[in-house]
Simulated assay, not measured.
Amino acid sequence: MTKTVVVTGAGSGIGRAIATTLAERGWQVVVTDIDAAAADLVAAALPAGDGVRHEATVLDVTSASDAATVAYGVTDRLGLDAWVSNAGISFMHRFLDAPIAKFDQTMDVNLKGVFVCGQAAARAMVRSNTAGAIVNTASMAGKQGRVPFLADYVASKFGVVGLTQAMAYELGEHGITVNCVCPGYVETPMQSRELEWEAQLRGITTEGVRAMMLDDTPLRRLERPEDVARSVAFLLSDDARFITGEALAVNGGAYMD
């Protein structure tokens, strides 16, 4: 029987890789993003087997009403078996110079968005008596504060790790598992922006920053979105049905705990 998953922030980067990997493994994917055109392009490119129809829809993850509309709509039309809260943003600035407005924006998307979407997904699963799975995208920055120029991002991702555990504890009685993945230095458009920002803040070249990332990573390469996607696929699989509340490090050894 085909299972259906909603992926947020799936218009590019890690989210697109998650949507693609899950589709390749037989999932029916609802691609959501704040950018409607990007979501449409990703959904149209997904491989689909017999009886599988991928969808795309706009979702502002900070909106409880938007999240509920998507969660209940998917449940009623297709059945909601899993939800991946992946949407996230970042800005880089020295802590002393960090604008409160940017802090608010980061927390709204990265933490409130995970709360809002997780709540909507869980309510829909409980209503339909579905022992589903929820995976949140955190970061290795959610396990250590030794991350320069990203204090607000670090705070948001520590929050995601804690929220994942709290959700897992309360939703266990409904058979719903909740886990998060903690990627490292992933080659995405967001990281490309961060490379430029960090280079400016350090007064070095982007290649110099990239070399620092490689030096931090024992496996000696930067992470690819597909590395994260395969970990998410595992956490949504039957093999992971007795794993919940976990913050899975997927970073090539860049941070070990």
Rank of each mutant, 00 (worst) to 15 (best):
A155Y: 13
R210A: 08
P99T: 04
A43S: 14
L195Y: 09
M212A: 12
N179F: 04
V61M: 05
E223N: 10
P225W: 02
H54N: 07
T164N: 13
R25S: 15
D257Y: 13
L22I: 04
T188G: 10
A120P: 00
V181I: 14
A233D: 02
G11H: 07
D66H: 15
V178Y: 08
G79A: 11
R53Q: 14
I89T: 13
V29R: 11
T188K: 05
L222N: 05
Q191P: 00
V147Q: 14
K157H: 09
A17D: 07
A168H: 10
V154A: 12
V250E: 09
A43N: 06
R220F: 04
M140C: 04
D81Q: 13
N251I: 04
L111Q: 12
D104N: 14
A124I: 00
E187F: 02
L96S: 13
A254F: 04
L163Q: 10
L46A: 12
W197T: 02
T2E: 12
K102G: 06
T206V: 14
N179G: 09
M107I: 11
V126C: 07
G203V: 00
R123M: 10
G184I: 03
A101H: 08
N136I: 06
L214E: 03
S65R: 10
K157N: 11
T206R: 10
T21V: 11
A133Y: 03
A37Q: 13
S231V: 00
A151Y: 11
V186W: 02
D108I: 03
F234D: 01
A131V: 01
G145W: 08
E246W: 06
Q191T: 07
V161G: 14
V7R: 08
V228C: 10
V70D: 11
K143D: 04
D239E: 15
A141I: 01
G208W: 00
A155F: 09
G203Y: 02
C180W: 09
Q105E: 15
T177A: 15
V109D: 12
A211H: 06
A64Q: 10
Y255S: 06
V232K: 01
Q191G: 09
C180T: 03
Y72D: 13
D97L: 10
A64S: 15
G11Y: 05
N179M: 05
T205Q: 00
F103G: 08
R123P: 00
P99S: 09
T32H: 10
S139L: 06
W27G: 06
